[in-house]
């Protein structure tokens, strides 16, 4: 392995080891949360809601839950990890190393991405045992999940670098991210909403992400799939580029 590759692998290993060291908090808790949603909305409430787009309510909800688990974990991991290392000053060890801005950014982004991936894969596997979850459009599902994960992992990096206190990170998660995800249609179909809420939902970018993932699993969508995929690709690329610029300039990282 070249020294440059050793650098990237070590930087990434460090991020992965962080969340694997505290598995109850980083893996156990989010899995429990997802299964509580499945229990409540599937077993308890699902039978009263009836079918949505021809699927049992629980089957309709699970794709959104998988996407939500990916998004929130990717975001939380990166924003917390970066802020914590900035707080301890430990990040200086990476910053004073020969690693390039691109390598640093890639490793920090991958940390949360891999945590989100792990949790969403486990959720998918367990959900597959409990319910009959189809995968209708694999070729849409994989890029959609990859892009959603990368987008939120990058957003976590952006917030973590800009944050100056832990409150900044929890504010972004509680007051921006969570409402956007919950109102984006994880638990319902936007078409069931009365006006003006249905139209308002179309201004929520997370709505398109959930719809894409749901289309990948169930094959139903009330959005233009290819346009949404193109826009999500563009947004993810723009965010990654903005982060790269931030790492290159050393904004809020270097003094």
């Amino acid at each position: 392995m070249s020294p440059s590759m050793v650098r990237l692998v070590s930087l990434t290993r460090r991020e992965v080891s962080r969340f694997l060291k505290i598995p109850r908090q980083t893996v156990g808790a989010p899995l429990l949360e997802t299964f509580l949603y499945i229990s409540i909305f599937g077993a308890a409430l699902g039978s009263r809601v009836g079918d949505l787009h021809g699927y049992e309510y629980i089957v309709f909800v699970v794709p959104g839950l998988i996407m939500m688990a990916f998004a929130i974990n990717a975001f939380t991991n990166n924003s917390s990890s970066i802020l914590q290392q900035k707080f301890q000053g430990a990040i200086d060890d990476q910053l004073s190393s020969p690693a390039s801005p691109g390598q640093l950014l890639l490793a920090f982004t991958l940390g949360g991405f891999l945590r989100g991936l792990l949790i969403s894969v486990v959720t998918f596997l367990v959900a597959s045992l409990l319910i009959d979850l189809p995968v209708k459009h694999f070729y849409i599902l994989i890029p959609a999940l990859f892009l959603v994960g990368w987008f939120f992992a990058s957003l976590g990096v952006l917030v973590g670098v800009r944050a100056e206190q832990f409150d900044d990170v929890s504010f972004a998660q509680t007051f921006i991210l969570q409402p956007l995800i919950f109102l984006g249609g994880v638990f319902y179909s936007a078409s069931l909403l009365p006006e003006p809420y249905e139209t308002l939902t179309h201004f929520n970018p997370v709505y398109y992400m959930i719809s894409l993932v749901r289309y990948g699993f169930l094959g139903v969508a009330d959005i233009s799939v290819w346009l949404s995929l193109a826009l999500l690709t563009a947004a993810t690329a723009a965010l990654t580029f903005a982060n790269y610029r931030m790492f290159k300039s050393g904004y809020k990282l270097r003094r």
């Binding site: 392995m1 020294p3 440059s4 060291k21």
Partner: peptide
Amino acid sequence: NIDWFLTVEETLDFHGGYFGMG
């Protein structure tokens, strides 16, 4: 400025990795 989550060995090992050591 050492990372509280890491062990002593990991602290040194990761640092070596950042500098490209096999």
